[in-house]
């Protein structure tokens, strides 16, 4: 029973960290319509930044600086936000596909740096000894897991409430209007672009924060944690939950992570150890097909507010004009 609660807490902590990433993506895609296919890169930036700032000094690489965990999280958000802002500034005056391609490139380059810049990132072996909140409780796994869950849940809740507030604010309404009409958003010029860069940067900072939380939760990070599969999982979470809805983002994350973890357990039971790598790829196939099917038959997800367009084109244009002149 205790084991079960402990596992439940562990599961929920991971799921909530995913929720946080999904919330960041929801701000970028669901609210603003910015397509980020390299979010694993931003999560990695956060994880590595925080690890660098908070780990004890290590002769083999730069730092660590032994700073408090909170400083690490803050640093993660700042660096992640800046990286996202730069990406946005490079591409947001162009067609949305260019942003997709560029974010994809960011993830590739971050992965490359994580693997090869040993002096900074520890290379393929990653960074260990990352301080964990309530590390003193590590002897009592249940209490340790529950307290971690409490911290992650608190952070997720704060992010959720802040994003809910933001999406109802005038700022959020402008973003929604810009989302509906890319052409208008491009032609409205600098002010519209600035709004979108802001949204992209805040989203990137949230993703980076999630990466930092995860790093401090597991105490160890390596480049393998931030492969394209992570990007893909989070996208499925958002689409299942429904883009545009913060609640949907959280529920979708828990749901999909449940399916993922469950099917992972199932394959480990059903398949012989030497077949498990293959079985894991079958798991990805299933999720990939699921994503495509959802896009085809229920593009709004379970809780999405993203209206499907064709007919709304003209009306959306009117809203865009109004809200941008009013802001």
């Amino acid at each position: 029973m205790i084991d079960l609660i402990g596992y439940g807490a562990f599961f929920l902590t991971t799921a909530l960290i995913f929720s946080l990433v999904t919330l960041g993506l929801n701000l970028q895609w669901g609210l603003t319509g910015l397509f980020n296919v390299g979010l694993a890169g931003f999560v990695a930036i956060g994880a590595y930044t925080s690890a660098l700032l908070t780990t004890p000094d290590d002769a083999a690489r730069l730092g660590g600086f032994g700073l408090p965990i909170l400083v690490g999280w803050l640093g993660a958000m700042v660096v992640g936000g800046i990286a996202a802002a730069l990406t946005g500034m490079a591409t947001l005056r162009l067609r949305s596909d260019y942003l997709a391609i560029t974010t994809f490139g960011v993830a590739v380059v971050v992965q490359l740096v994580a693997l090869n810049a040993q002096k900074l990132t520890g290379g393929p072996f990653g960074i260990g000894f990352i301080p964990r909140p309530f590390g003193s409780l590590a002897e009592k796994p249940l209490l340790f897991n529950l307290s971690n869950l409490a911290v992650v849940a608190a952070v997720t809740l704060v992010a959720y409430l802040a994003l809910e507030h933001l999406s109802r604010s005038p700022w959020g309404r402008v973003l929604k209007a810009l989302r509906e009409d890319e052409r208008a958003a491009i032609s409205l010029g600098k002010s519209a672009r600035f709004y979108r860069v802001q949204a992209f940067a805040v989203g990137g900072a949230i993703m980076a924060l999630a990466g930092a939380l995860q790093a401090h939760f597991t105490g160890f990070i390596a480049p393998d944690n931030y492969l394209p599969i992570l990007t893909f999982q989070v996208w499925v979470m958002l689409i299942v939950g429904g883009s545009g809805s913060n609640l949907g983002a959280v529920i979708g994350s828990i749901l999909v992570w449940g399916i993922w973890a469950g099917s992972g357990t199932l394959t480990s039971v059903l398949f012989a150890p030497e077949q498990q790598a293959r079985a894991a790829s079958l798991q990805i196939v299933a999720i990939g097909v699921m994503l495509c099917i959802i896009l085809l038959i229920r593009p709004n997800g379970l809780f999405g507010d993203r209206l499907l367009r064709p007919r709304l084109g003209k009306r959306a244009k009117v809203t865009t004009a109004k809200s941008s002149s009013g802001s």
Partner: peptide
């Protein structure tokens, strides 16, 4: 684009 990303993974 997103669907192509999903299809790519699969």
């Amino acid at each position: 684009v997103m669907a192509s990303f999903g299809a790519s993974m699969a």
